[in-house]
Design a binder for these strands. Structure first.
Lengths: 276, 276
DNA sequence: AAAAAACGTTTCACTATATGAAACACTGTT
DNA sequence: AACAGTGTTTCATATAGTGAAACGTTTTTT
């Protein structure tokens, strides 16, 4: 009674904080929200959690957490590993693969990405703009030991990645301006472009050149190059990027990398002509 | 009151039917179960659903269904498409990719599968045994128009697929016997092996030859070949299969297919030596 | 152009269900 | 032998989920 939980929920366009569920909207089901907030905890690069641990992280009562986990376990959404810790279950993998949004992009990019990764020997990513960020739909990892590795399904800021910048650059002008209006440009390294005007000019440059470079703008030591993938209406729908350590990724490689990536992009474009 | 919902739930080893939640186990959260049963409906090869449609399919009240959907929408677990129908959302894709079970197998199989698919020009699958069925962890589709296409994350019967049979054949004997004790062998075609003794003998044969064939045992016109993938302890952990239409898949191809698949299997095995 | 059907959504009275502090059983550690 | 750490169960209480019916739109049929 004196120890209320507060819920921060985006609903019908607004973000708000509430003490009880009834205040939020009596159409929302609190238990379901709690269950998914629990699963959200697994995004913290930690694969296994105990009951008390999850309770602490979520702020839920230990008992509530236990009961939610029991429920999710009965559904195979989570499962216990050998140490009796809770991990995400195979049912979630199954459901995730049913998601139809961008499914054709995911499927048709698979083979071309592998070809590029084999040719360039660096990690290749494939992604789209989604809610002002880059959503990674697919990847093909470098066969080398030192490599970039991103989680498929995860998001990254657009303004400081080659993939994000190329997707922005080829978007309609109003979308670019909308982006700049809504996203705060924070410096990740000294190379990050944090000035709106400078970014606009940079995007103009990318549009002219046809590709984007990320020169350690997100992370020191990490360099990327990216090109757009168009549909038949010449609208950008996705992008391909190659990422590698600065020790291997030299300016003289750019042209040969570009010709390899472009072949891959063309292959994808031939499959998704009807996509929009 | 007079229109009870019945819940069929597997919990603590038992499958049971209950009229109210309290009967099931007061530790299970009914709303969470309902939400996931709603998502389960999307496994019926239909990507978009309306409220009433889902209500009818699940047996839930229209209002309840609407509220569950509103909740799931606020979490991006489902989203509305252009026709205002509900489809599975990107958050589910994100969560599905976080599942750690078999993650290394999924990652390391990607490149080899693409190589095989490119060489053989047929669809390649990669899967494991999970709860007496084949779970497809990865695939690389044929570039040809007429091809097999399976959903990653989906399941198939083991006894009538090349992949399932090869995984069974190289499993410990007690697991094979346990399988035969628990699984009913139904005829999918006239070629399906539905006799336990015959299947046992067939598995013995597969073990000797080192590969399994599925000669239209699951579906008329569909032929598959599969080989096992071992860990460093020589235990089978996964399998690779190649599937194609009987019009293309001829007996004289078997040897050349095998040599190509075996290269891929070796590549995967080199990466997963520590897997068990 | 009017009527009917189908849709998602909201209302409101009712009761089933989620809740959490405390107690419990168990395991590994000090 | 005492302790600290788990996950789990209990029980009284109040919150939150429920569904029939009504509502306002949109789409289809007449």
């Amino acid at each position: 009674m004196n120890n209320k939980n507060y819920f921060t929920i985006r609903y019908k366009g607004r973000v708000n904080k509430y003490a009880t569920m009834k205040e939020v909207d009596k159409n929302l089901n609190l238990s379901v929200i709690k269950a998914f907030k629990l699963l959200d905890v697994y995004m913290n690069n930690k694969q296994e959690w105990g009951v008390r641990e999850l309770a602490k992280k979520t702020g839920y009562n230990k008992t509530t957490t236990y009961r939610l986990l029991s429920t999710l376990e009965s559904l195979d959404i989570v499962q216990k590993n050998d140490d009796d810790k809770y991990i995400l279950g195979l049912k979630l993998f199954e459901l995730g693969n049913l998601v139809s949004v961008h499914k054709s992009l995911r499927n048709y990019s698979r083979a071309p990405l592998e070809t590029i990764a084999k040719d360039i020997k660096e990690t290749v990513h494939f992604g789209v703009l989604s809610n002002h960020r880059v959503l990674y739909l697919n990847k093909a990892e470098s066969e080398l030991g030192l490599k970039v590795s991103t989680q498929i399904g995860s998001y990254q800021q657009a303004y400081c990645t080659a993939l994000g910048k190329v997707l922005l650059a080829f978007s309609p002008t109003d979308q670019i301006l909308d982006y700049l209006k809504n996203v705060k440009l924070d410096a990740h390294t000294t190379n990050t472009i944090i000035d709106s005007k400078a970014l606009l000019g940079h995007l103009e440059h990318i549009r002219k050149e046809g590709y984007a470079l990320d020169m350690e703008e997100l992370e020191i030591g990490l360099i990327c190059i990216a090109i757009p993938v168009f549909n038949k209406n010449k609208e950008v729908v996705a992008g391909i990027s190659v990422s590698g350590p600065s020790s291997r990724f030299k300016p003289e490689n750019v042209q040969s990398y570009l010709s390899i990536i472009k072949k891959g992009a063309l292959e994808i474009e031939n499959h998704i002509r009807d996509y929009n």
